[in-house]
Design a protein around this nucleic acid. Structure first.
Lengths: 143, 143
DNA sequence: CCCGTATGGTCAACCTCGTTGACCATAGCC
DNA sequence: GGCTATGGTCAACGAGGTTGACCATACGGG
């Protein structure tokens, strides 16, 4: 079991490393896998709220904040006030951000395709399914 | 893909949390899942070298050191000089350590059994297999 | 016998990815 | 008009690792 846990960690790291390398090849060495998830979730036109992004990616808003801070300081994203809610801000892609988002999609696609090829569609699906079941909080019930 | 990575993380966390809770119920609230791996790897009679433990668990020796430091300060383990090699030390279970190790084995077994039941043996095996393939460094080749 | 290299353990610094807790400002209901 | 809920933010921390540098001992070859 401890090795299962370790395998989960290592598999994740392998995937992350691969995506990272892919992103770098595409000219975005400053983007890390975590950012990609944000790029895939953000609304391309109007932008998205921090809270919505966090929820979509299943992160705390604080964690999402850190990602947005990164991307903002790198010039991929800008925070603009939400016209409909003075508390909120919209995280909006800059022109550069739109390019990056597009490459992220491709990079993610590419890794996913390769993984599917490596594993075969059936095992890939089984893997995802099994992980979803394990990841559910309900797993650890029943003392 | 980014969600696959996330699932790997979450699945791992779920497993770790479950093991942690199990360990606590067994009276070892100060043990964390990382320690369990050590307990499962250590030679119960003569003890094991740090390097061997690290290798067995696929950790750097520095990371293993931290675990051993923990367990030593908690009184589960002692470092004794290796009679066959003045450079080396043997990490040896104390009496308390032996009890803890036994409970760790049971806790790990228990989580593993439950997981197998949850997933079914076939999917469990597929999962492990798939993870092993993904975790291999060879996965990310070919730019 | 002595030297160079390999190996075992250790220290220090750092990173990623995430968490919880506390707060403030604005929303929005009654 | 006040009360609670919500959006964003700051600060601190934790787990679980990594790399790099080092020192002492081991061990093989001249």
């Amino acid at each position: 079991m401890t090795d299962l846990a370790r395998l989960l960690l290592e598999a994740r790291r392998a995937l992350a490393t691969e995506l990272d390398a892919d992103l770098e090849e595409r000219g975005f060495p400053d983007l890390r896998p975590g950012h990609a998830a944000l790029f895939l979730s953000i609304d391309r036109r109007s932008g998205s709220r921090l809270t919505d992004l966090a929820e979509h990616v299943r992160l705390t808003k604080q964690a999402m904040m850190a990602l947005v801070d990164d991307l903002e300081s790198l010039g991929y994203v800008r925070r603009v006030p939400d016209p409909n809610d003075a508390r909120a801000k919209l995280v909006r892609l800059t022109a550069r951000g739109r390019r990056a988002a597009a490459e992220c999609r491709r990079a993610v696609q590419s890794v996913e395709q390769r993984t599917k090829r490596q594993l075969g569609d059936r095992r890939f699906d089984t893997l995802r399914e099994a992980l979803e079941e394990l990841a559910e909080p309900s797993s650890a019930e029943g003392a």
